[in-house]
């Protein structure tokens, strides 16, 4: 499981995460909501070791991401999908997907490649496996991004607003894949503004506000009038999101 305890993070004098406690158990989909600047991306970046914690603890299956000796193992257990895809532009889709399995997991190239092609096929990109990112649409690129993460066979998927750079049609392409992953029991930490979609796939929803975790509730409780909606900030956030 992913466990965060009292996580503190500041940039200069700005406190961005202020004592975050969060557990994500295997099999759960935990969606993180919150307005822009509330610290959602920073929390994900603390989980995958891209930011150093200023205080508190994050462990992934008991591997401490702040401990350089544990970090490699922690990173093998989680995989990140980025908002802006962050594909390697000089590599084809299949090369993007196989790089880490070959280099980090030491999977033989032929095996990594056939697994990558099967993955790309499963997200409808079988015919585009040898295309470069510049030759793919945004939605296709993000599907490659998801395959790149899945190819590491991670126990936890960390997804940071992976559809916010996409138009509605492409967003649907990508969300369909996530829905499928959720059905097969993939554990996900899902930062999103797609409220309705989050509602359909999440086991729990947490709400971040100014670096604090305001609520952490089962999905139905989050949307209940006497649950999350009882919180003025959350009610305001949800009504604003629904209008957009």
């Amino acid at each position: 499981m992913i466990r965060a305890r009292g996580v503190q993070k500041s940039f200069g004098s700005a406190v961005v995460l202020d004592g975050i406690d969060l557990d994500v158990n295997v099999g759960e989909v935990v969606s993180i909501l919150g307005s822009s600047g509330s610290g959602k991306s920073t929390l994900i970046r603390c989980m995958n070791g891209l930011e150093r914690l200023d205080g508190g603890l994050i462990t992934i299956d008991d591997f401490d991401v702040s401990n350089p000796k544990d970090l490699a193992e922690a990173r093998k257990r989680s995989a990140t999908v980025f908002q802006l895809f962050n594909l390697y532009p000089h590599m084809t889709a299949v090369e993007n997907v196989t790089l880490a399995p070959i280099q980090v997991l030491r999977i033989p190239r032929a095996q990594a490649e056939s697994e990558a092609r099967a993955l790309l096929d499963s997200v409808g990109l079988g015919a585009r496996a040898d295309a470069y990112p510049a030759q793919l649409s945004g939605g296709q690129r993000q599907r490659v991004g998801i395959c790149r993460a899945l190819a590491m066979k991670p126990r936890y998927l960390l997804l940071d607003e992976i559809t916010s750079a996409l138009d509605p049609e492409m967003t649907a392409e990508v969300l369909n894949i996530l829905a499928q992953l959720a059905r097969t029991g993939t554990t996900m930490v899902f930062v999103t503004h797609e409220i309705e979609f989050a509602r359909t796939i999440s086991s729990r929803i947490v709400f971040l506000d100014k670096g604090r975790l305001v609520v952490d509730l089962p999905t139905d409780r989050f949307f209940a009038g006497d649950g999350g909606m009882a919180n003025a900030r959350i009610a305001q956030f949800l009504s604003k999101m629904r209008k957009e």
Partner: peptide, 21 residues
């Protein structure tokens, strides 16, 4: 930086990042 970060989170070493990315 996004290029280097997306290689780092997948566990590539500094040398592997230099060489492949």
């Amino acid at each position: 930086r996004d290029q280097i970060e997306s290689a780092r989170v997948f566990g590539l070493s500094r040398w592997q990042i230099l060489r492949h990315v």
